[in-house]
Design a protein around this nucleic acid. Structure first.
Lengths: 206, 206
DNA sequence: GTCTATACAGCGATAGAC
DNA sequence: GTCTATCGCTGTATAGAC
């Protein structure tokens, strides 16, 4: 049953150890030891640690893209919520790239550039979403243009850093919690009846 | 004129290099070399790298406390804004503790505990502030209790991670920008006339 | 206080046998 | 593909002279 290739074993073990113990603390020796192969063998599959990081990152991007394709074209509130939750689960699995951004970015500038691009794209998507809501008149009319720009930025900001804040409030640290957290940013910008609708929706996730 | 003691030199150089190049990349050898002392001498003043980190952290806490004492008891909007700006300048000077939290917390659990405590205290302060605004009827009446709890959390969340997000938007990375950023969280929760007042106030910082 | 010298562990990476 | 063995380098920390 355990048909994992050595390469897969390396990747899975790396992900786990990087996530839990820190990229700067885990060496190719540690990883090799934990899956009972030699360090030499590991270096046959990945020439160095950074290449493992790059491979993991590519997998993350791939999974995020896949998740997007499953999203419906219709933008019901429920769809949005579950799409977000799905995204958060993926991000949580690859949390090293968010929690240990500084270390990884310094090691592999290529990953830094790709992530910055990713977030720029996401910001535009969110601005488009806000505009749809404005057109549908679900959005408050008394919000300044500067504040709307801020709102989009606030979303991106929170997506980027949600995993950094588990620590002072560990009991509430779960993808579910943060999906709710993120949507609550949105609430006070909506017209009253719309806000109430969302409030019940968020309470329903539990 | 250069009356800096060796200990001060070590501290200043460490702060600069940790901030810019990463705690995990800077060794006692690097620091010593940069200020033209031997590594042995550095280890006379600080037994190891972690003790330098602890010293830097204690200085940060001290400066934050000092800044608090200068704050007026009156809570004018202008006072709040400038106090926040002051705090952000200090945090920026010691940004390693926010940008490189994961690495530092793993190395020095004592710092982790102290920071968690700090943020818990800050959250209570912010909740108290929200309540004052509610009593003064400047706050919207149609906001749920859950959403108010969220608002406090959102503030703490943003304070903790503001320094992590310079990268996708580097042109806007300054303490001033983030002071404004933080206050904009607050805006859509205020009654309309109050919101407008804040909007002009924020635009005045430029 | 400051220096030089050194011990020692751990890192990434490679060579060469099987 | 996988192993063992090993090189060269860098890290922390300490000992002992001045």
């Amino acid at each position: 049953m355990n048909q994992k290739s050595t390469k897969e074993k390396i990747i899975d073990q790396s992900l786990e150890m990087f996530n839990d113990l820190g990229v700067e603390n885990i060496t190719t020796r540690h990883i090799a030891k934990e899956i009972n192969i030699s360090q030499g063998n590991l270096h046959y599959h990945f020439p160095n640690k950074d290449k493992i990081l790059e491979f993991l990152f590519e997998t993350l991007i791939l999974k995020l893209k896949e998740a997007e394709e499953f999203d419906g074209i219709e933008l019901t509130e429920d769809d949005m919520l579950h799409s977000m939750l799905n995204n958060f689960n993926i991000m949580y699995a690859y949390r090293l790239f968010f929690q240990q951004k500084e270390v990884i970015w310094r090691r592999v500038p290529k990953i830094k550039e790709a992530m910055i691009l990713l977030f720029k794209t996401k910001k535009l998507e969110i601005l488009a979403l806000i505009n749809i809501y404005k057109k549908e008149e679900k959005f408050r009319g008394d919000i300044s243009a500067e504040q709307i720009e801020f709102l989009a930025e606030q979303f991106i900001f929170s997506i980027q850093s949600w995993l950094n804040v588990k620590n002072y409030n560990p009991e509430n640290h779960s993808p579910q919690y943060y999906a709710k957290f993120l949507f609550r940013i949105w609430l006070p910008y909506l017209k009253n009846e719309e806000m109430k609708k969302w409030e019940t929706l968020l309470n329903d996730i539990g």
